[in-house]
Design a protein around this nucleic acid. Sequence first.
DNA 1: TATGAATGAGACTTCATTCAT
DNA 2: AATGAATGAAGTCTCATTCAT
Lengths: 196, 196, 196, 196
Amino acid sequence: MAKKRGVKYDKIIDAAVKVIAKNGYHHSQVSKIAKEAGVADGTIYLYFKNKEDILISLFEEKMGSFVGHIKETMEKEESTKQKLFILIEMHLKQLEKDHDLALVTQLELRQSNISIRLRVNEVLKGYLKLIDSVILEGQENGLFDTDLDVRIVRQLIFGAIDEVVTNWVMKDHRYELAPLAASIHAFLLKGLAKAT
Amino acid sequence: MAKKRGVKYDKIIDAAVKVIAKNGYHHSQVSKIAKEAGVADGTIYLYFKNKEDILISLFEEKMGSFVGHIKETMEKEESTKQKLFILIEMHLKQLEKDHDLALVTQLELRQSNISIRLRVNEVLKGYLKLIDSVILEGQENGLFDTDLDVRIVRQLIFGAIDEVVTNWVMKDHRYELAPLAASIHAFLLKGLAKAT
Amino acid sequence: MAKKRGVKYDKIIDAAVKVIAKNGYHHSQVSKIAKEAGVADGTIYLYFKNKEDILISLFEEKMGSFVGHIKETMEKEESTKQKLFILIEMHLKQLEKDHDLALVTQLELRQSNISIRLRVNEVLKGYLKLIDSVILEGQENGLFDTDLDVRIVRQLIFGAIDEVVTNWVMKDHRYELAPLAASIHAFLLKGLAKAT
Amino acid sequence: MAKKRGVKYDKIIDAAVKVIAKNGYHHSQVSKIAKEAGVADGTIYLYFKNKEDILISLFEEKMGSFVGHIKETMEKEESTKQKLFILIEMHLKQLEKDHDLALVTQLELRQSNISIRLRVNEVLKGYLKLIDSVILEGQENGLFDTDLDVRIVRQLIFGAIDEVVTNWVMKDHRYELAPLAASIHAFLLKGLAKAT
DNA sequence: TATGAATGAGACTTCATTCAT
DNA sequence: AATGAATGAAGTCTCATTCAT
């Protein structure tokens, strides 16, 4: 049965990120990942149920801490505006820090089939909740428009940030990503604000 | 060589949309598409270079008119605000009208490999130019903030709308999409506006 | 039904030689031959039963005159020795004259399946009979060893000449072929002669 | 990657000879060879790069020892005449011993494409060198005509023997092959001898 | 006679997964 | 726990041949 712990577990996850980033999802055979991880093909199946499970675990593993870090940092902030900025900037910063991971999450992971996409969405829920919490807080303290439908606006915000990251990846990370946080923040903040 | 016209060409494209929407890209064998189109397997290759070419052609074919329609309708409008609304609403309406097509463009097409993604981006350029034109017009007539970086804002707008559509598809088209245009429009309009 | 005459019949044969020489047997599709001949694919089947039939007809057509020419010229000679020389030299000269044909007969035609090979052998019989006639004449007039088994020696002679031509083709016709007739003639003549 | 050793490697080679001899090259599907060898289809690809590689390996494997055996035996002989006899007789004997192999080397292998033919020629070089060595030795010890062009005569000898074998195969091995060595030897010996 | 669009059978190869060691 | 050789299902594409016009 798949064990979700162990030195090799982490090795395999990291190897998968590296191999997929380098070769693309469709050319990342299990054997290639095993080789990169320094284990035998069969060993993979002691830690993961199947190939899909590597992908999902990879995303859960990496995104778990991704969301965790943002949450922690946001909680240290008082201002709602500032919280939104933290969310955006850390989103960008964390992906900018790890080009391979960004490539995998923005492009390669989306080439997987629908069942993986749905699992990915589950993981994203944690992130979307963070967005929700900012929106609600802003509405409560009179900063944001209370007419906004949280479910829609959450998508607008996530879609906007996500698209910026995807573009950066598609352009081969040729420019700095984190500095774009300010513009995005300004735009979204206005969008969220009460109509004047 | 591949002929890009003819009754069967259209039949195959339509069959591909249907089959891919139903079975997913990776389970849509050429033989299945051929059967749905009512032609022999080999006939596919009289009209398309290979399987990938079906996908790309499908997107080019459908998106060509998609962008064309929006552009036409926008040009009949005077107001910049209204033009943005047209863009958003028609984007939603056109995809809502054809569930299968929406499924293919929002989910299945993105599962294809990078080379297809790049071709898709080429087609999208026409749409992004439309967005640009609205932004620039708004900046020129003093409606929008002139500090906005068009390249970034274009991504924010596209990403936002696209994410809303993707969510709708993922939720199995369980709600009406076009009515969301108003909220999206309001949000983006504020985001684009001059800071007060 | 296949008609063995007509302008197009010849055109198709010549096109086949050209196309096969250029592209190799396995890349010489019927459609390519048709295009080179300036006829429609279907027209081929008005003149030939199937693709194999083109090949066999090609060989029969070309080899018929090949053997005919040699026979005619040999008959003008008195001397048995000289007849053998004629046979060898004309064999080489006729193939040297038409590089494409040489390529097809020496290499490409042999890539076809066994059934074609057997038909080819039928055509070759006429040539082998010519060889036989020289051997027998030599034996009768006391020039050649009467102990020789005609069936074997015929093979030795044909195999020897054929190999020389094949080598020349494989070496891209980089040297002159006909001048080799003298050496071959000398060698075979000695081989045929009475033991001393 | 393809491993060139192992029990299964040999099994597959032998199965290939058998299957190709029986069905002909073009009707010898990989699956048929795998079945005959008692392995799974995919196993073939653990040992061979592709189908072509089976053919080439088969030839290299079998011909390597073919030439080796002749060479060894020839070296035990003193007399040049006798060496030539050994070469001819062993050539015939070795192929007569294995009808399937003879069928494959004389007919089926020559149906393959040019790239294989060139690889085959490489392997044949070892054999041609053997022939050369005999010719040169004969010339040195005054037995053979020193005017002979080795490059041509080598082709005459090889072509002659090869044709005899091919005929035997085409005639379904209906007669004994090895006994023909004497006639061939006598003929070639005279051909090689000094003109009197 | 001639056309050429349409047909559809057929095979090589990949790669996720297993299991004997 | 770890290995890695072996498995075998599954799908794209080619091309000789046909037949309605």
